[in-house]
Amino acid sequence: MMSFAPPSEIAAVAVRDLRVSRGGREVLHGLTFDVPKGQITGLLGPSGCGKTTLIRSIVGVQIVERGEVTVLGEPAGSPGLRRRIGYSTQNPAIYRDLTVTENLRYFAAVLKAPKGDIARVLDEVGLAGARDQLGSTLSGGQLTRASLAVSLLGSPELLVLDEPTVGLDPVLRKELWELFQGLADRGVTLMVSSHVMDEAARCQRLIMIRDGDIIADDSPDALRTRTRTTDLEEAFLRVIEERAVA
């Protein structure tokens, strides 16, 4: 039997030996890591590496084969957590036949978020101008932001965002990352997945995943120093090479 350190008090998310199978194939091979509170943790890796499965396990909507996932001190999926976690799926989970405001109004009612939250999150994601547009008439980037806005309702302590910046122009991406950093500064914990390495530099901590295994779990600076490169894309490649040699 392997033994693991107990989840530390300061960790927002503690994952111990997490194994998940999908479609008869093991896609996460026993992951163990902690996510510190009040920081942005980046989940990086190519498409199909298991990022979304990991995120779903943390949110508590994934059937898990083995292992423990503790979120904000409770087992993942506990009813008490449902109001404390904001979750944005990779495909924007927005009703296309409702306007942005109507979507927000509904989810705010489900979450019992304060009335003023709708205007606040619209501003935060820069979608106030499209508030009365139907979901079906929004662009891909606007849909992503509408979905992100829903996850910000009710000011959750933990935000789990699956590829929140896909398809956005550089200016918007920069604004969103400033928003994420602002939230982290207020004590919110963020887990943000991405397959774009230039976003990695904006995280305080990086978890790199490849084929269902963690290949690096470090701060961007430490990773750069260890792999003797300034470029994180290059660092990712070197980590893979190191593992191939070892």
Partner: peptide
Amino acid sequence: TSGTLERLMASPL
């Protein structure tokens, strides 16, 4: 299929 059910299942609904 639209993913809204998953979002709702992760919510207090």
